[in-house]
Amino acid sequence: MNIFWLTGDLSHLAAIVILLLKIWKTRSCAGISGKGQLLFALVFTTRYLDLLTSFISLYNTSMKLIYIACSYATVYLIYMKFKATYDGNHDTFRVEFLVVPVGGLSFLINHDFSPLEILCTFSIYLESVAILPQLFMISKTGEAETITTHYLFFLGLYRALYLVNSIWRFYFEGCFDLIAVVAGVVQTILYCDFFYLYITKVLKGKKLSLPA
């Protein structure tokens, strides 16, 4: 493990916890895409099936369990506990346009044609685009609460740090996972526009709002 890997994981954890706490403290999931959170729950579920087949480390296992538990808790808060605050009218991204092509691609391009590996590859491809429902929702409403932008920032930062981790591991450990790197680049690119707005607006104390 290197510093980029660890800070990537912690950034990912921060994002998940920020979102969970935001919904819990404000008793509201306004401005949050429930569809996006369903996709992330699907991502964690399909990727971490190896919890049942292999043990890597206590750190690895506990982080996987925390990610899964938090993502399901978030989905529960949005669709059950605080359902009345869920803004379904603005959460209209067609997720089948992501899940179906990504499912097809994971059958075609993977490291090994086995159920577990295909599901894991599916999760990597899906994660790279899973933020689109949330970004789409922000573009529809034209604004985002500041705490939501912090969530998005840490979520985007995590994958950027993982890319640096991939470079590190290529040089110092001689391993390179092309699927993870390409998906990571796609994922990070999708955040670039948001990163720009976050740095130029939110960090200067302004609310993130898009021109009409």
């Binding site: 990912h12 990727r47 890597i56 480390s57 590996e117 981790n165 450990e173 391993c175 993870a180």
Partner: peptide, 10 residues
């Protein structure tokens, strides 16, 4: 290096 199919990253 980790063996192929060994998903040590999250």
């Amino acid at each position: 290096p980790p063996a192929e199919g060994d998903h040590d990253e999250l």
